[in-house]
């Protein structure tokens, strides 16, 4: 049931991304172009999504456990440190370079564009590089 629930959630997430316009790099870059011919449309995507999570997450966490798993698995980190800021700054730079963040990049694979495939393959390579670097630093 847990896996089936995850599949349904993924379908909703992917459909939401495609419906919202997040899988269209022209719209994403137009949204980030606030000093040019700004396209404010995509502000409603984050706005709509956060409106739902900000209200409903609190209600969900009143439960002791999730429905199909033993326990909630939530991020514990609270620190606003250099690693968070540098990572987020890099991520935003890559997002602005081409117009995809990870979710829309994956969903857009079905369009069969060569650029999207290059983006996704490189993204996993970047994740691998950063993970190796983090492991090397930790040991």
């Amino acid at each position: 049931m847990k896996a089936l629930a995850a599949l349904v959630c993924g379908l909703m997430f992917g459909a939401g991304l495609a419906l919202s316009g997040m899988t269209d790099t022209a719209k994403v870059l137009g949204f980030l172009d606030i000093f040019g011919d700004w396209m404010p449309d995509l502000a409603f995507v984050m706005g709509g999504a956060v409106a739902v999570t900000a209200i409903a997450f609190t209600l969900v966490l009143r439960r002791r456990t999730p429905i199909f798993a033993q326990a909630f698995s939530l991020p514990q980190a609270r620190a606003i440190d250099g690693r968070l800021m540098i990572g987020s700054a890099l991520f935003g730079t890559g997002w602005g370079l081409y117009g995809y963040c990870p979710g829309p990049g994956l969903t857009a694979l079905i369009y069969g564009h060569t650029g999207t495939l290059a983006f996704v393959v490189s993204m996993f390579a970047g994740m691998w590089l950063a993970s190796r670097w983090l492991q090397g630093r930790a040991s």
Binding site: R83, G87, L90, T114, S122, M127
Partner: peptide, 16 residues
Amino acid sequence: AAAAGLVVGIGVRLGN
């Protein structure tokens, strides 16, 4: 696209 993907991948791992 490949350059952007690389930077995104590194960034999201560092920034969690």
